[in-house]
Design a protein around this nucleic acid. Structure first.
Length: 442
RNA sequence: CGGAGUAUAGCUCAGCCUGGUAGAGCGCUUGCUUCGGGAGCAAGAGGUCGUUGGUUCGAAUCCAGCUACUCCGACCA
């Protein structure tokens, strides 16, 4: 993308409304624009990041055996009356009437609808296990939206729903999502720690929140510090075999949010392993058995010929929230430091003198080769001054810069700058291009 | 939903207390000079001061209603 043809309304000053760093940086970098309280337009740069997060979520869900579909944003109130939640949900639910006075709602979640779809088609245990998911905009009329996309009213969420014949298999489905989440957040450069969450009326141990540690986190969390650096199992696990060890490895160490905190258990940890910090919830997985399948009559026939309500779980990821969470976890005083996997652009070619023919020729070479290789490259071909360009590139957090100016070209070198490391290296144009291409595969 | 605020140029804000017909910086346009860390000079464009009503000879300024937004708290992917 040539910057002269792009739409990047970056701001020098942060609008006064923004309180936390991710909100400020998203506004300053021209990623989002607030259209109403808790409702944002995603400008081109922000949209690129959102799409990359969405893509990683999709790839990891697919890998774990979930199947993508797309359910509508609007739902019929009658569907929610089947589960009893139409009256139970309260004013957070946005209720709408169409021209025929039919009651609709803008979906805050999709348990009812997915159960309705499931029951319409699936009748036998032979069709299980099944995990259906989508990534769709939700609306919850929060009393007090804040923190930009971290706590918006309209938000993009990945929600998956598992269906199994019994609890044993439901636990396996839960474990698949547990492991998929570890991989998914790790790919985005996040250290997300699974923590015991409230299981509500079902009870048991099958609900976890995935928490990213960040100073500006919304809630206080407590955990064994080993969990933070434990890493992810990776894609090569035996998805339909035994994942329990991966889950046990993490759930055996203490980790809880404030609501679930057990001070005595935490105090029992070795002093140097006690970690008390702020956290951002980026995912939540939940087993809820027959809470929806029973009242909504989503029955499957087992091998014994008996009909039982499906055992269900749901698995959410705050996709739009993740964009903010990643920034909270990765920034400095100059701007965002994107992990490469979610960076809006992987490399930027920065022309220091747009009116210099040699500089332009070198830039075109670099940009052309990067684009040809499928790299998301940005070419700053504007006539701005170098200082302004560097500031903008640092603000929007491009991981690698190839800086090309007349002085360097005279001695046959360009600069390769790494945003995260803060390093600048001089090398030939070809070497810089190759480094960017090579760094990608790693 | 309780409490507290804010609303003036694209952004950050001043002006309001003590009414007299709107300003600064940044950004934007044009020109010249600049050009390796958010340049300098010059000339410009841009605002029915959130909205409705009231007081007044006169309202950005005082009063009331409404709307939107923000902050603190309680609640949430």
């Amino acid at each position: 993308m040539r910057l002269t043809r792009y739409f990047l309304p970056a701001l020098k000053e942060a609008p006064a409304d923004a309180q936390i760093i991710s909100h400020q940086l998203m506004l300053r970098a021209g990623m989002i624009r607030q259209e109403a309280a808790g409702i944002y337009a995603w400008l081109p740069l922000g949209f690129r990041v959102l799409k990359k997060v969405e893509k990683i979520v999709r790839e990891e869900m697919d890998r774990a055996g979930a199947v993508e579909l797309l359910m509508p944003t609007l739902q019929l109130a009658d569907l929610w009356r089947e589960s009893g939640r139409y009256d139970a949900y309260g004013p957070e639910m946005l209720r709408i009437k169409d021209r025929h006075e039919r009651e609709l709602l803008y979906g805050p979640t999709n348990e009812e609808m997915i159960t309705e779809i499931f029951r319409a088609y699936v009748k036998s245990y032979k069709d299980l296990p099944l995990n259906l998911y989508h990534q769709q905009w939700k609306f919850r009329d929060e009393r007090r939206p804040r923190f930009g996309v971290m706590r918006g009213r309209e938000f993009l969420m990945k929600d998956a729903y598992s269906f199994d014949i019994d609890e044993v298999n439901a636990r396996k489905a839960y474990n698949r999502m547990f492991v998929a989440y570890l991989n998914l957040f790790a790919r985005m450069g996040l250290k997300a720690v699974p923590m015991r969450a409230d299981t509500g009326p079902i009870g048991g141990d099958l609900s976890h929140e995935f928490i990213v540690l960040a100073e500006t986190g919304e809630s206080q969390v407590f955990c064994h510090s080993d969990l933070v650096e434990m890493g992810a199992p990776g894609p090569d696990v035996d998805w339909y075999g035994d994942l329990q060890l991966h889950v046990d490895k993490r759930t055996s160490l203490y980790a809880a949010t404030e609501e679930m905190h057990d001070a005595a258990a935490f105090d029992a940890l070795p002093e140097e392993k006690k970690l008390s910090a702020r956290g951002i919830e980026v995912g939540h997985i939940f087993y809820f058995g027959t809470k929806y399948s029973a009242p909504m009559n989503a029955m499957v026939t087992g091998p014994d010929g008996k009909q039982v309500p499906a055992q269900m779980g749901s698995y959410g990821v705050g996709v739009s929230r993740l964009v903010g969470a990643i920034i909270e976890a990765s920034h400095d005083e100059k701007g965002v430091i994107w992990p490469a996997a979610v960076a809006p652009f992987e490399v930027a070619v920065v022309s220091l003198r747009a009116d210099d023919a040699d500089v332009t020729a070198a830039c075109e070479t670099a940009y052309g080769q990067l684009i040809k290789a499928g790299v998301d490259a940005l070419y700053d071909d504007t006539p701005e001054r170098p200082g302004a360009k560097f500031s903008t590139m640092e603000l929007i957090g491009v991981p690698e810069l190839i800086v090309i100016g007349p002085k360097g070209l005279k001695t046959g070198v360009v600069e390769l700058r790494n945003r995260k490391a803060g390093t600048t290296e001089e090398m030939s144009l070809e070497a810089a291009i190759n480094r960017c291409l090579a760094g990608r595969k790693a």
